[in-house]
Amino acid sequence: MAKWDSVKPERDLYGSNLTETPTVDARRTEEVVEETVETGAKPLGLWADTWRRLKRNKLALVGLGIIIVFLSIGVVETAFYQAHLHIRSSSDTRANSHVAGYLAPYDPNEVNYALSPQGVGSPPSWKHPFGTDFLGRDVLSRVLIATRIAMLVGIIAVAIALTLGLLLGPISGYYGGAIDSVIMRIADIFFAFPYILFVLLIMSVLGQGFQNVFIAIGVLGWASFARIVRGQILSVKSMEYVEAARAQGAGDVRIIFRHVLPNSMAPVYVAVAMAIGGAIVTEAALSYLGIGVQPPESSWGLMIAESVQYLASGNWWWLLFPSLALTTTVFGFISFGNGLRDATDPKLKE
């Protein structure tokens, strides 16, 4: 019925003999089985139900565990970072004091040439489980402190993108027409542009520095959130409960905030989890290219970039550990996001 696509979803149009008269079991047999199973189950809340299904997805749980571990590291290290700044600024005499993090065994910026005999660092040992880099800095400590940047980028950049997306997406979806066309065409432009190139462009305008990394990634991310929200709203706004609210006399604001948005969010949460992973990778890529986080600040991307220069000397540990941290984190967010999607989509159930 392709040619009817643009017709408003009315229940009694041509070709929909099928949809007019469904009874409760007017569904496919698999669904009947599912219903048999589900009617047996005690009804759970929507979140409880999602959690129940998520719990059975081992990979998603592993992902969640990874996220929790890295987030905790990020939080603890941020707290340390604040304290550290305070010490540095409050007394110049202690500027050279060596401050280890709460988790980091050493000061991540402490240069110790003794630990880098030939200027190429030293391999993992009991004292330095991840080894040291060319300046003799402890790689473990640097990986840990870099977690802070990774988490900040992930969360702040996605928060910016989400805010923009949640602002523009609903307007686009709910009102439709010309507003919708304009917003969606702008979104298309954002999609069409090569991503890294776009970030580079924005960074060149804003200047370097990690705050600007957040902004660049965030500004670029809005389009996908706006699209998801818009699509959801288009399907939710034709639901009968929205029509029922309108029949009760509800206005647009009430309909959007009470009925449409709350029922449109599930795919957004999934997208958030995925986008955080993506933002962390982008930050690493930017830092690798030298336009993201600047030394002596530490970032996984930066560490990878530094290590690559020395790769020929066989110093695998500089490359391995930051890469491992990066991949693990991103894997955590993506597998959790995937699990969340499966758990919130009843069609992919079980």
Binding site: V33, T36, V37, T39, G40, A41, K42, R52, R56
Partner: peptide, 11 residues
């Protein structure tokens, strides 16, 4: 029967 998380459903 269906053996579900919540118990056995004797369909």
């Amino acid at each position: 029967y269906f053996f579900t998380h919540a118990g056995v459903v004797k369909a």
